[in-house]
Design a protein around this nucleic acid. Sequence first.
DNA 1: ATAATTATGGTATAAACAACTAAAACCCCT
DNA 2: AGGGGTTTTAGTTGTTTATACCATAATTAT
Lengths: 247, 247
Amino acid sequence: MSANLHRTSAHPLSPMSLADFKVGVDNVIFSVDTQQNRLLVLVVMRPDDPFAGHWSLPGTLVRQGESLEAAAYRVLAEKIRVNTLYLEQLYTFGGPERDPREAPQAFDVRYLSVSHFALVRFEDAELIAEGSGTAWYPLAQVPQLAFDHSEILTYGYRRLRNKLEYSPIAFDVLPEMFTLGDLYQLYVTVLGEGFSDYSNFRARLLKLGFLQDTGQKTSRGAGRPASLYRFDAAAFEPCKDKPMVFI
Amino acid sequence: MSANLHRTSAHPLSPMSLADFKVGVDNVIFSVDTQQNRLLVLVVMRPDDPFAGHWSLPGTLVRQGESLEAAAYRVLAEKIRVNTLYLEQLYTFGGPERDPREAPQAFDVRYLSVSHFALVRFEDAELIAEGSGTAWYPLAQVPQLAFDHSEILTYGYRRLRNKLEYSPIAFDVLPEMFTLGDLYQLYVTVLGEGFSDYSNFRARLLKLGFLQDTGQKTSRGAGRPASLYRFDAAAFEPCKDKPMVFI
DNA sequence: ATAATTATGGTATAAACAACTAAAACCCCT
DNA sequence: AGGGGTTTTAGTTGTTTATACCATAATTAT
């Protein structure tokens, strides 16, 4: 190992000191079932040890020449077929004790997890190889997960709430045209009630000015038909970094 | 390489597909010089190739048995002596082309940077080995940095602004007792003016109720003596996740 | 028709924001 | 000792915004 591998310190390295890593990505993939108003998380059954037979977040090890983001998209694509989604990096978990394969004496390999967070449209998210160990779980009913994945999930849920409050990610998973009721239901399902009643939510969102009325109406069951709106990304620009709702 | 190294996919691996990583941490270390009202960034001169003679963020490779956070604290401790600080993980940069040592054909090692963000108290941050390649630069005058470190710095500055707006990190680097003027100056130095004038800033912060008046006064030069306040962490709890100022 | 249901468009009240003004308590200088 | 400059402190006022609540419109179900 040559000295210039060491990037910033001027000290020469003792040959045993650097760790070698395998880097994985683990995805917290959320979806909102607007039929049943449930917030769902995608989990997979581990086929092999360690934690064989336990649920975990979908993940993979990063391949040669593959970016972290590409690996995250690949994991997602291996589990579900979906076109409409939002994905971003979440946090990197890398303590030396997070994986039981890293026995204290076995200092030859360490595992690092660059976790990602995704929100996908439930209606067109088609599970690949359903029944064989891939499942949507309502958030409150997700079982204990392998490794430190439960901790990652907690972190991801916090990010989801934050994103929904400050970013227009809802429109990445809503249909092209949607009603204000659809939008409100999505928010209630994720954030719970108590952030705003429907009437005030409506007034606030419309005032922000990035929802354009398409003129079309929809009639779904009883009640007055609702107007269909479209998200106007350009008109959203001034609203960036400002909260859309207050929790 | 045994099959159970592969963590979640059921497919067997071709032996060449996984990447081996060296993992580094690179720190964006900010400090506020309240004497001159300047926001400073710590940079170090690279002694070796690649980018020998260029400035970069202080960083190091992660050692065996060392957590990411521990590595970040170690880098910081190697460059400055400081007791009072805030540190958190920022983002992980890991594209396969971010380091020139990763030649397209040389797929044997990849470099990953788990960047961290820190804010330290300038008054008791003592540079180690000053003159020999460690320097505080005002943010606007930071030169082009090695690798993708300029991008990391931009990311870190965005995080700093965000943290200051929503979190009580200012009190991690202010003295135990401080005046409202001190606090305001810190905010102005980082955020620029235009978020609130001093009078309204005062009224807002005091109303939030987590600043307790110590009863003591300080007299620094001309003008009426200012009250000294202390940050009350317990009283801050209800204010968590609510913005302290509006940009 | 009538009731139930859902969408829409308000109002009133209280709180918060923004710009500004005035007083208080110190320093320094003559 | 007194007056001018400086900085902290404490407001005032007009405008905007959040919150709770209500009335009406347009549809489906009975």
